[in-house]
Design a protein around this nucleic acid. Structure first.
Lengths: 340, 340
DNA sequence: CTGAAAGCGCTAACAG
DNA sequence: CTGTTAGCGCTTTCAG
């Protein structure tokens, strides 16, 4: 059994409180007693019981991170960044994987709240934020920051990028590269997937080019979804020559499907993803993508969360949008001869 | 403020105990009272306070996962597998990133234990397991499973593969492909890195081929380490024609360095990694690797841990070694003409 | 079937 | 400077 304060106190013939204070560096303990206590505690490998401490202080030094997927390296990067920011301050992170399912996400959030986490970072899988999660979160006054997935018109902390712009940026790039039969393998049915789709469509409308056609196929957020989506596109009589994929994982799947079919990227089909995942320049065909600054995002999310956790009264919600940055690599960069 | 049992009890005019029992489905509560309580609890979105509950039951339903790196997708796969196994049973996972540093790892383990986690999964960064961690773990009787990183001769739960065999397998493959100037970009200075290195050297000795030379360069476990390691190898007068990399991340970095130098893979240099990370067949040059069955590993680790957590008395430590499976892709597969 | 008493390991507030 | 008292929200034990 682990040592408790009581044990140290009894052994040293002082009261439990004296031990408690000494251990936490309270000033009103004599130099000598403090040292005696600290030494003995060290010898016994004493570690304060955080469960007990949390029960009274109402602080757990735990932050919950809810993400739809760990395998997609974008969220692994977020998790990594968050733990690097928060770890040195004594926080640990509880990971909850919603697997892109709104109901699972709800349950996980509830559990996290029941554990009295000090804060929450959510890449939400909710289709409609307003009806899903808010009231659970509002009952508890646990601060939270949404990340990556933008909730439609809710006044909450958010760090991410403007999805519609992102979609438009990717699409304009394909147009500029001379693609005339565009397609989009869309993401999940949530604000994020919807936003990128809208950006795609808006950019097409604005381009004003009459001869440009387009298609949208169902996708998702994972590699498999991209693979299937692209297969479907390849069945079309007039197959696309430029495809914007919801994210890099989807794009990776799409590339696979194209190469299997024996077509060339970008000559036959140009491809662009989103996320700028850390290995995307090492892919079969180095992947063009829209950078979302994952590292900075998690850094910002962490600092907003910290502000909230430290504040007495909840600060005004902040929304930080990082600019979408186009990164052109081989998968979409057509040589002059290929452009029309 | 969140609702407590006390609130429900007062409101319904029953005792706190009755609520507690009803909520946990105790049989000795009348049908009617139970329903009244359950209904009200649901209406109020009551969630039991796990901190309080844990303090008395000594169960947190939290499992700690300590890994040296999240970005290397192998561990992300482990984290994912673990949470998929344990999640449905009501467990959540606290992530602790040791960043390949033994001291950080120790601190993280101590914190996890102070949080009374029910169990621990460790991909340990300790150089020498015996002097590092055991006594911290033995004081607490928290069950734990080591994963991937094999401790030298300690009788504890372990799930992973035989590193020396893995190294030998990779090396034999390179020899069979006709490489004659082998090199190894080694991993961290721990049993795992050491084992793979030994396998490399053993396979070379056994091959008995006199004209085969070899080199070993310092590396690490990340992409950068591989990049730097390969750069160093490329400086040699007689540069290697076959390189075994500690893991896939290192191999990805190595590939980058080779391509930047304008050399061909596998014709000029064959490369093989380890881990069979999920995107390795999508890499610039599809990566040959040794599969370590990440998914099955985490599944097995989870089930061993569960057995321990449920058992009254600690079961005999189990060690499960998965076979290393060679996966040949383009990065090491030389055409006949290239073989000597 | 229901509830009162005691306590998990710790800290806040105050009294000596 | 040190110690006492009173909980945090829940469960365990045992008496009604």
């Amino acid at each position: 059994m682990a040592v408790r304060m009581k044990d140290i106190a009894k052994e040293l013939g002082v009261s439990l409180m004296t031990v408690s204070k000494a251990l936490r560096g309270h000033s009103d303990i004599s130099q000598e007693t403090r040292e005696r206590i600290l030494r003995r505690a060290r010898e016994l490998h004493y570690q304060p019981n955080w469960i007990a401490r949390s029960l009274v202080t109402r602080q757990t030094f735990i932050v919950g991170l809810v993400i739809p997927d760990l395998m997609y390296s974008f969220f692994a990067e977020v998790a990594d960044g968050l733990s690097k920011q928060l770890g040195p301050l004594g926080y640990q992170i509880v990971l909850a994987n919603s697997d892109e399912d709104p109901a699972t996400e709800r349950t996980q959030i509830e559990l996290l709240l029941a554990r009295n986490v000090d804060g929450l970072v959510l890449a939400s899988a909710q289709r409609d934020w307003r009806r899903g999660v808010p009231h659970i979160l509002q009952d508890h006054d646990t601060p939270f920051v949404l990340i990556d997935r933008q909730p439609s018109g809710a006044n909450v902390n958010f760090v991410g990028c403007h999805d519609e712009e992102l979609g438009a940026l990717a699409t304009r790039h394909l147009l500029e590269e001379g693609c005339v039969r565009l397609a989009h393998i869309r993401g999940p049915d949530n604000p994020c997937g919807a936003g990128r789709l809208q950006g795609f469509e808006r950019a097409l409308r604005k381009s004003g080019q009459k001869h440009v056609t387009h298609n949208v196929v169902a996708g998702g957020s994972k590699e498999d979804d991209g693979y299937r989506g692209m297969k479907e596109l390849l069945k079309l009589k007039r197959r696309p020559d430029g495809v914007f994929c919801y994210n890099d994982a989807v794009a990776a799947g799409a590339i696979k499907a194209v190469l299997e079919r024996g077509l060339k990227i970008p000559d036959d089909i140009a491809i662009i993803g989103a996320g700028n995942v850390h290995y995307s320049d090492l892919l079969r065909v180095p992947l063009s993508t829209i950078d979302q600054s994952a590292a900075q995002m998690s850094e910002t999310a962490a600092s907003i969360l910290l502000d909230c956790m430290r504040a007495k009264t909840p600060p005004e919600p902040r929304r930080v949008l990082f600019p979408s940055r186009l990164i052109v690599r081989e998968s979409s960069h057509r040589t002059a001869s290929n452009k029309k």
